[in-house]
Design a protein around this nucleic acid. Structure first.
Lengths: 324, 324
DNA sequence: GTGAAAGCGCTAACAG
DNA sequence: CTGTTAGCGCTTTCAC
C-alpha cells in the first residue's frame, strides 16, 4: 500500500507537508504544492480513511436503524436521509431490525465502538434500556426513547384530525382503524386518539384493530384485512397505514365491495404506493423529505457539538384521492 | 476515552493480553482472563473500531450502490443483502446514485480509501472507465462492468421466454414492451430479446418503448404509460417492469380498458408491489433473495481472498396473477 | 513555509 | 501463558 511517506519521499518533503497539501490546510508554497501534487498523481496515491479516522477520532458515518428497509415509508426515508447526509459530508450505514435478532443492540454497540459518529434511530424494538447510559449523538425518528434523545416526527395529532375530517362529510356509520402495537412508544399513536376523538364527537362508531409490533410483511396486512371484514361485516370506512389500506382494497374487491361507493378508505403515511394502484388512495401524507432533512440536520449538528434547538412536529398534508 | 491501556493498567497485565482476551485468541489463563474481564466491566470499556480497522487493515464494511434505494426492487435487494452481510459479520453502507451528481465516483473512491472492504455495484450510471485500474473487490449486480468483475444476475433469457409464454395462449395481436435504456449495459436486456423472439415466431406484433436510463420515479412510469396508450391505441398486451405495469393498469382503468379482458399485462421483476393492488399482477419474478445471497457470498469471499467460482444465472419464476 | 516527533488505540511478532 | 516492542497511516503541535 502506498502511504503518505512514499509521497513525501518522492516529493522530497515531509509527510506533514503532504498532509497539509491534501487537506488544504495552512500555508504551503506554490512550488512545494506542485511537487506534492505531482507525486500524488505519479503514485496514484489515495489516503487511507482508516488512519485518518483514527487520527481525527471520527468516521463521518451516520447509522440509520429502521425496522424494515424495504417498507415504502422507511425506504423513502432512507433515500432522503442518505442524500441529506451525503450533502453534509457523511456516509450512511443502514440496519434493519426485523428478521435479525438483537440487531438494534449490536448497532448501538457500534456507536460505542465509534464505528459511526451518530445514529438516527427509527426501529420499533421494545428494549429501551440499552440507551440509558449513552451520551453519544442519537436522534430518534418518530419514536420516544428517553428525555435526552431529541425526536423528529410529523404532527400526528393533526394527521389524525385530517383523516377524520376526510371521513366526516360522507357520514359513515362504522369506521374501523388499523393501528400498530400500542406497546411501541411512538408519537404516531397520537393520530389514533385524535382520529377517534374527532369522529366520536360527530357520533360515528369507531373500532380499532391492533396489529403486532413487528408486522411489516405484506402478508401480515392481508391477514389483518381479512380479519377486519370478517369481524366487522358492516364496516363502511377504514383508516390505517398505507399497506393495510392497500390490502383492504384488495379484499374489498374480492368480496365485491365497491370503493368509494360502499366503503371509504383513508391511508396514513401517503407513500408512493398510494399512487401506484388503479385508484389514488386518499391519504394523510407524512412529510418524509422534511423529516429526513431534520433528522440529518439534527444528528450532524449534534456530532459537531452544536446543541440543536428544540424539535417541533412537522406538518402533514392530505392527499386527495379516489377512495374517500 | 478509556483505552486498552487503561484496562491493562487496572488489570495489571499488558495491553496485548487484554487484546487476546477481547478477541478470544491464543491461550490466556483463566485467572488473568477474569482479571481482564473485570477491569473491562468496571471501566465499561469498549474497544475502538477505528484503531482496530487501522491495525487489521479492514473495516468489515461492504458498500452497496443502487440507482434508487426506495425502488421496490432495490429496496428489497438491499434488505436481503444487508441481512446476508450481517450474518457474515459485515456492515452495509448504501448509496443511491440518482439525484446525486457523481455519487458513483465518490463511492468507488471510498473503496480506494479503504473505507469499505468491497462493494456490490448495482447502479446504472454510464461511466465504466472509473473501474478500469481497480483491483479491489467488486461484485456487479445485474450489470456488466468489465471482464474482471464477476456479476450476479437472474436468468433473464428464460425470464423473457416465460413472459412470452404467458401471453401466447391469449393470442394477442399487438403487444408492447417497455424497456430500460439500451445504453445501460445489463444482462437484463436479454429478456427483451428472448421475449420478442418468442412472440414474433408465433406471429405476434411486438413494439418496444424505451425509457430513459435514469427513470425511476413513479411519475416517469405514469408518463410512459400515457404515451404508450396514445401511440398504440390498439395495444392488447403489455410487458414491462413492475412499476410501469402498475402505471399501465391505472391509465387503462382511467380509459375504461378492462384488464385482463381487453388488455393482458405481465410485469417483470415481481416485487411485492405486484401483490399490493386489487389484482395480483402476473409477473416474472426475479429471485431477489437468491441474488442477494450470491452477491453477499461473492463479495465476502473475495474480500477474504478466496477467488470464487464462476457465476451462473439464477432461475426466475412465473407468478400467476389476475392480469394475463 | 516546512520538518521532526509524538500520538490516535489497537494488533502481532517474538521473546522469555 | 504473558510482556515488550514495533508498527498500521495519518494529523498536529512546535521548533527552526
Amino acid at each position: 500500500m502506498t502511504s503518505i511517506k512514499d509521497v513525501a519521499k518522492l516529493a522530497k518533503v515531509a509527510p506533514s507537508t503532504v498532509s497539509l497539501v491534501l487537506n488544504h490546510k495552512g500555508y504551503v508554497s506554490e512550488i512545494t504544492r506542485k511537487k506534492v501534487e505531482e507525486a500524488v498523481a505519479k503514485l496514484s496515491y489515495v489516503p487511507s480513511e482508516m488512519a485518518r479516522n483514527l487520527s481525527l477520532n471520527r468516521t463521518n458515518m451516520i447509522g440509520v436503524i429502521v425496522p424494515e428497509i424495504s417498507h415504502p415509508f422507511f425506504a423513502t426515508f432512507i433515500r432522503e436521509v442518505e442524500v441529506e447526509l451525503y450533502r453534509r459530508g457523511y456516509k450512511t450505514m443502514v440496519c434493519s431490525t426485523v428478521q435479525k435478532a438483537n440487531a438494534e443492540h449490536a448497532f448501538v454497540n457500534m456507536l460505542r465502538r465509534q464505528t459511526m459518529d451518530g445514529i438516527i434511530m427509527g426501529a420499533h424494538s421494545l428494549e429501551l434500556d440499552i440507551y440509558d447510559g449513552l451520551s453519544h449523538p442519537i436522534v430518534a425518528f418518530d419514536r420516544f426513547i428517553n428525555e435526552n434523545i431529541p425526536i423528529v416526527h410529523a404532527d400526528h395529532q393533526s394527521g389524525g384530525r385530517l383523516a377524520a375530517k376526510a371521513f366526516l362529510p360522507h357520514r359513515c356509520h362504522h369506521i374501523v382503524q388499523i393501528m400498530g402495537a400500542r406497546e411501541v412508544l411512538t408519537p404516531a399513536n397520537a393520530h389514533h386518539e385524535a382520529f377517534i376523538e374527532t369522529l366520536t364527537e360527530a357520533g360515528t362508531r369507531v373500532d380499532t384493530l391492533e396489529m403486532a409490533w413487528n408486522a411489516f410483511d405484506p402478508i401480515d396486512f392481508l391477514q389483518t384485512a381479512e380479519q377486519l371484514f370478517n369481524k366487522y361485516p358492516d364496516v363502511d370506512g377504514i383508516f390505517g397505514p398505507d399497506l393495510a389500506i392497500c390490502s383492504c382494497m384488495r379484499v374489498a374487491a374480492q368480496r365485491g365491495i365497491r370503493v368509494p361507493e360502499n366503503l371509504k378508505l383513508v391511508a396514513y403515511d401517503g407513500t408512493y404506493i398510494t399512487r401506484m394502484g388503479q385508484q389514488v388512495i386518499t391519504a394523510v401524507v407524512q412529510p418524509i423529505g422534511h423529516l429526513a432533512y431534520m433528522a440529518a440536520e439534527k444528528i450532524t449538528s449534534w456530532v459537531n457539538g452544536r446543541p440543536g434547538e428544540k424539535l417541533y412536529a412537522l406538518p402533514v398534508t392530505l392527499q386527495e384521492g379516489d377512495t374517500c
